[in-house]
């Protein structure tokens, strides 16, 4: 039974585009899939290894622009989409290494700030180097995937299945990784870096691996994002995007894949589907009831208020998230109740 259930769910998810024929809904589900991938990536860094990265959207941008450079009229290069998933993942992973190598020895919150700075620099550089990046215009006319002669175009349905497939592959990969040698080193570092080092774990290598692998996931998400929209511009990769990914992770439960998926799905649907719809519901209500305030309200405006409230309340009242892993829950509650081990974490 326990083995059957996930299969049932996967099959059910595969049928969603057949049941819901509204293209904008499918598009929103596909975008949600992108958020799941991003959350997977950040989860390796923050959830498994306990390093805080704040400018994660920078790697997302690097993945998207890598694909845009190599498959658009920008330089007249048109490489095939499928191998580019791997190439962009590698490029983003490489940037993860380059940023991680000098900074990973920093204390937790300093690392957070370095990555935040990096996250501010990347979109600005993309904006300023207009000869190569198209500057503020970004790059348009990006090639869209083809499979056995079938062009994806702007139809959201094939992207939905693509995201679903990549998420399933990632799940398999992450599950194996988590129980591998490197996965156990990550968690050892998260629990107690000093002890991990004494146990003979090469903490630098493990942290670097986490950083570049996490970045690689963002790179994959970037390729899919660029292909689906067929355009990239610097404005889509700012701090707000990083916060959205972090909120998904915090809400669902860091370090636990079912939790991460749940968080990303909730935030994604809230962001891509429910808030835009809710705005219309409220406005219609306002028009019908002749309440001017309601008729002109825009709930999209307040989505960062929603994220803010999620971040604060979850951290205060359920720091392990909605669906935590057993170890993480034990950890967080032990630390919150007694002061001593917490000092060790500093």
């Amino acid at each position: 039974m326990k083995r059957v259930l996930p299969l049932v769910i996967i099959v059910a998810l595969a049928f969603v585009p057949l049941l819901d024929r509204n293209a904008s809904h499918i598009s929103a589900y596909a975008d949600t899939g992108g958020l799941v991938l991003l959350a997977f990536g950040l989860n390796i860094i923050v959830g498994y290894t306990g390093l805080l990265a704040l400018g994660f959207a920078a790697f997302f941008a690097i993945g998207a622009y890598t694909y845009a450079f190599l498959a658009s009229p920008q330089f007249g290069i048109h490489l095939n989409f499928w191998p580019m998933i791997g190439v962009s993942a590698a490029v983003a992973g490489l940037f993860g290494l380059v940023l991680g190598a000098p900074t990973l020895r920093l204390r937790g919150d300093y690392l957070a700030i370095v990555t935040l700075g990096f996250g501010e620099i990347v979109p600005q550089v993309l904006q300023n180097l207009d000869k190569w990046t198209g500057g503020p215009d970004g790059i348009a006319g990006i090639d869209q995937p083809r499979l056995f002669g079938f062009g994806f175009g702007f139809n959201p349905v094939p992207y939905y299945y693509l995201y679903l497939a990549i998420i399933l592959v990632s799940l398999w990969l992450l599950n194996n990784l988590r129980h591998s040698r490197i996965g156990r080193s990550w968690m050892a570092i998260r629990e107690d870096e000093l002890a991990a080092a004494h146990m003979g774990i090469n903490t630098t290598t493990a942290k670097l691996a986490a950083f570049s692998l996490g970045a690689a996931f963002a790179g994959v998400a970037g390729v899919l994002f660029a292909a689906k929209l067929s355009t990239v511009s610097p404005s889509g990769f700012d701090f707000n995007t990083s916060v959205m990914i972090l909120a998904a992770l915090v809400l669902g439960g860091m370090g636990n894949l079912p939790g991460v998926i749940t968080g990303a799905v909730i935030i994604g649907l809230l962001n891509f589907l429910i808030l835009p719809q809710a705005t219309n519901w409220v406005q219609t209500l306002g028009q019908q009831m002749h309440i001017a305030v309601l008729a002109s309200v825009d709930l999209n405006q307040y989505r960062f208020l929603v994220y803010g409230i999620i971040l604060v309340t979850v951290m205060l009242f359920r720091p392990e998230g909605l669906i935590p892993s057993a170890t993480r829950r034990a950890e967080l509650h032990a630390e919150a109740s007694s002061g001593a081990p917490a000092q060790a974490d500093g």
């Binding site: 326990k2 996930p6 079912p258 799905v265």
Partner: peptide, 16 residues
């Protein structure tokens, strides 16, 4: 793991 993945996916499907 399967149980957890399952649980998450239920939530996902429900919200969808």
């Amino acid at each position: 793991i399967a149980r957890h993945v399952g649980l998450a996916t239920i939530v996902a499907v429900l919200s969808l």
